[in-house]
Design a binder for these strands. Structure first.
Lengths: 304, 304
DNA sequence: AGTCACTGTTGATTATTTGGAAACTATATG
DNA sequence: CATATAGTTTCCAAATAATCAACAGTGACT
């Protein structure tokens, strides 16, 4: 056993399925990865990977090596977690993944306070909407909505994500809206990411509607959609975390507050570990407190 | 997890109970050990050892760190073993511990042949009589007699260790010896290591004796004892592996061949592992074949 | 008490290892 | 057949690790 440091590299290559992708995960150059795998193979006296220029696969030896190697890095991680769980002052590097728009609007506000509160923690914040593999990319904790991508993950509900229907005051001045059905006659601007983007549902005790709205603008970015709504382009449905403040300062009007919309939850998601590192624990607690649980701060201005 | 390479060092220190002893085991300078532990502690942000100049003990953090760290290095070792078990040609470094006299007389003869047979194996042969901790000192395989020092070790019987009573022909010429009891009148030279060195027992179907022999020479080294016997100083009891060849070439006479003596076994001992490395396996097989099993080559000349 | 042998630490110097940029080869894709 | 991507290689710079030697503290043994 000459260099244990090769193990995490080997494991990364095996799991990500390539030298280049492993290099990206490990934040190394691919030449470095290549060299270390080569030297590991040399040390072991056996090839661990079949390399064809375009595809990589484990050899028989690689497969037998993998199990114990992965166990070794897991144990090493555990060892580190075990002491950090004992530590008074949380510390270490924390990689966080969050959805883009929520990250820009709220997480980015929270981070400075968090860093101030825990000066020994360093943060790598990744804002990205696509599905991410927490384990491969070494993300310590992620904010995710919807279903869990992997069963070895733990999810704790952080806050509700409610969307509401909004419009600018200048727009309402031109028309009268008394019932959701009236929206069928209006310019409804939509997010183009959601698959059934122009089916808007409204739920109340008395009536429920599923409306097939239409409009002249569709965009895959909440910020842009909000901008359009603010400028009176049309009526939009947006999460409260985007428009909450504009309702509060009257730049936007909350339409049909008596009707609810399907509600999602935002979860704190982290890999299952033997010892939950302090840094993850305090981040979770901090986030929960910062956002305010069931009625997040951006909904404080709303009377729903 | 910055440097996995610190783990084996930490584990060695924890297990050997000191920086200096760990340095010896790891074949490093103690300053190197000291520095790497220090940097590991710095990285973790916690002290792992309580150091008083003369004694070392694990801190609370050190204890929690230890379990997983030890598991990690064990897994790493397993990973390596797993591929080496698949390998065609055995290779790697093999550390062997053997009793001093047996090592000098027989193992040292065997090694050249072994190295010749397996050119990719390198050997570190330790000849020592005291008790050795296989695990701490990274001995891959040991030849031991008697009881096992540790339960996590595996012992396979290699060959019997028989001692016989011998005397030089010049000595027998001066006296008549027909029965073990006659030894009470003779000069019996003994090994001073064995605790009850001057109680010699003889066992046969007809009679058994426990004789309290006396003599004018006692020495803790079989070679010296053999030398004395060869020079007609007196009657000695020596293992067949020491005197076998001298019986064969008539330099010594085997007394009372009809009587047996308590018999010991020499065991091949190695740490329990998930994958027995090829190099250990081939060494075991080679030793078994080389020495000849139940009647080792040095007993071939004897008619017992 | 005072050697003595041994422990762990530190600083300076030297070796070794490691990492990165760029050039190179090979191959799937379109 | 061009292009983008994957892995390897060479060369060089930078970081890391190891050693030696000197130091300081402590228990054991006269």
């Amino acid at each position: 056993m000459k260099s244990l440091n090769d193990l995490p590299i080997f494991v990364a290559v095996a799991e990500s399925g390539g030298f280049s992708s492993a290099a990206r995960v490990l934040d190394l150059s691919k030449s470095a990865v290549s060299k270390r795998i080569t030297q590991l193979e040399q040390h072991l006296g056996a090839r661990l990977f079949h390399r064809t220029t375009r595809h990589l696969s484990l050899t028989e030896a690689g497969v037998s090596f993998y199990d114990s190697a992965a166990a070794a890095v897991r144990c090493a991680q555990d060892a580190e977690d075990a002491v950090s769980a004992l530590l008074g002052e949380p510390r270490g590097h924390l990689k966080i993944a969050v959805p883009l728009s929520f990250g820009q609007l709220h997480v980015s506000r929270m981070i400075p306070e968090f860093l101030n509160r825990y000066p020994l923690i360093t943060i790598d914040l990744v804002m990205e909407d696509g599905p991410i593999n927490l384990l491969d990319s070494h993300v310590d904790v992620a904010l995710l909505t919807g279903k869990l991508p992997d069963s070895s993950l733990i999810a704790r509900r952080l806050l509700p994500l409610r969307s509401i229907t909004v419009v600018s005051p200048t727009y309402t001045a031109k028309t009268s809206l008394s019932c959701p059905k009236d929206l069928l006659e209006e310019n409804c601007i939509t997010r183009s990411t959601s698959s059934n983007k122009n089916v808007w549902s409204f739920i109340s005790k008395q009536h429920s509607y599923e409306l097939n709205v239409t409009g002249n603008y569709s965009v895959n970015n909440s910020e842009a959609l909000k901008e359009a709504a603010l400028n009176g382009v049309g009526i939009a449905r947006l999460p409260t975390f985007v428009v909450g403040e504009y309702i509060a300062n009257k730049k936007l009007v909350h339409l049909f507050p008596d009707f609810a919309m399907p509600e999602l939850d935002l979860h704190l998601v982290y890999p299952e570990r033997n010892y939950l590192p302090q840094k993850v624990k305090v981040f979770n607690d901090f986030a929960r407190e910062f956002f305010g649980g069931d009625t997040p701060y951006w909904e404080k201005g709303l009377l729903s």
